[in-house]
Nucleic acid binder design. Structure first.
Length: 351
RNA sequence: CUGACAUGUAUCUGU
């Protein structure tokens, strides 16, 4: 059973949850191995990440039908699924059944609720959940604080965000790399890179190691303040010190070079990326497509679109908006429609 | 007695 759970969980994480379910139905039944709650949690979480709420709910009901008793993790997975897709009322209902069945919430439950309520605009309830978790001494880590810091930062409230960091420390918890990075990103966007660097100093002082995301955040902040060369210096330093850069590092700088119209730098960065075998993603192509569109090279944009599909990267809503907005300016109405149909046919849902 | 498998938070691109 452990072996199967490992395989099933791997498939779920790889976005192959339907296949994982077939493994359950066919292989496990064949050998008469009984799935347990972990098996179901993996599958529910897998469907959750694929936004298949119906399937997640179906598996939850199957647990009940089999006479098994869902534990906290199973409830958490389904709660998270509902809240991520905006089904707040379902989540509330599930939460009350969880209470009725005397399944006690843990710190995961609370952080899922805090994040989910904030995501769906129920700010007051989110804060109440956070408070309740603290009162029940279930606040075992800083995740819920991190979520609140992110909320404040995304709503322009840098002062409140910093206050939350102070609250973490007075609660005798230890801010982690995500706490600092979240706050640094808020600083970059609200009070400038200089301020973010103060936070960075604090992080180092409290012995939290910056990671790739931390540096990407700084690089992005510098790029947005037109200090692209300083940003590039950081990237070079990362590589020199053996910290591996990722696709977001490249995308951030690539976008900055494009905005600055440093064509040569942009091209050489793309080559650099290939050489280090960092795979491009949707954003990489979106940056390039946006760049060529801005100069009215719509044919070139089409070629990039083809190249991205050939590499197995699917256009998304941003690709759509970029291409449609540009085609309206430089193409005839039939061509705009042709592009629209083409993208919709590849699964893009226009917003 | 011990060990292996499940759930939550941060950074890039368009309008």
């Amino acid at each position: 059973c452990v072996t199967y759970n490992t395989v099933i969980n791997g498939l779920c994480k790889a976005g192959e949850t339907s296949l994982a379910e077939r493994v359950l139905r066919e292989d496990m039944c064949k050998w008469d191995i009984k799935p347990n709650l972990r098996t179901f949690s993996s599958l529910i979480d897998g469907f959750s990440n694929e936004r298949k709420v119906d399937d997640a709910l179906r598996l939850f009901n199957e647990i009940l039908d089999k006479g098994m008793v869902p534990n906290t993790t199973v409830y958490n997975s389904l709660l998270n699924c509902f809240l991520k897709q905006g089904f707040v009322e379902y989540a509330r209902y599930l939460l009350s059944s969880m209470m009725d069945s005397r399944t006690s919430p843990d710190h995961f439950t609370y952080t899922i609720l805090v994040e989910g309520f904030l995501r769906n605009g129920f700010v007051k309830e989110a804060f109440e959940c956070h408070q309740k978790m603290r009162e029940e001494s279930l606040c075992k880590d800083v995740v819920s604080y991190n979520i609140l810091i992110n909320y404040f930062c995304k709503h322009g409230k840098i002062k409140e965000a910093k206050q939350m960091l102070a609250n973490i420390i007075t609660s005798h918890l230890v801010p982690d790399v995500i706490t600092y990075t979240t706050l640094m990103d808020g600083c970059c966007k609200l009070s400038g890179v200089d301020d973010a660097l103060h936070v960075f100093d604090g992080m180092v002082k409290y012995e939290q190691r910056p990671n790739v995301v931390t540096y990407n955040t700084i690089i992005n902040g510098l790029c947005k303040e037109d200090s692209v060369d300083a940003a590039r210096f950081i990237m070079d330093e990362m590589m020199r010190t053996g910290l591996h850069v990722d696709v977001l590092t490249y995308n951030t700088l690539l976008n900055a070079y494009c905005n600055r119209e440093s064509f040569d730098e942009a091209v050489s960065l793309c080559l650099h990326m290939r050489k280090l075998k960092v795979m491009e993603n949707e954003s990489t192509y979106n940056v390039l497509i946006n760049f060529v569109c801005k100069f009215g090279f719509f044919q070139l944009a089409k070629e990039l679109l083809k190249a991205m599909i050939d590499r197995g990267i699917f256009p998304d809503q941003i690709t759509y908006t970029t291409l449609i907005a540009s085609s309206i300016k430089s193409c005839s109405p039939p061509e705009v429609l042709e592009m629209h149909d083409f993208l919709v046919l590849r699964g893009v849902i226009p917003d």
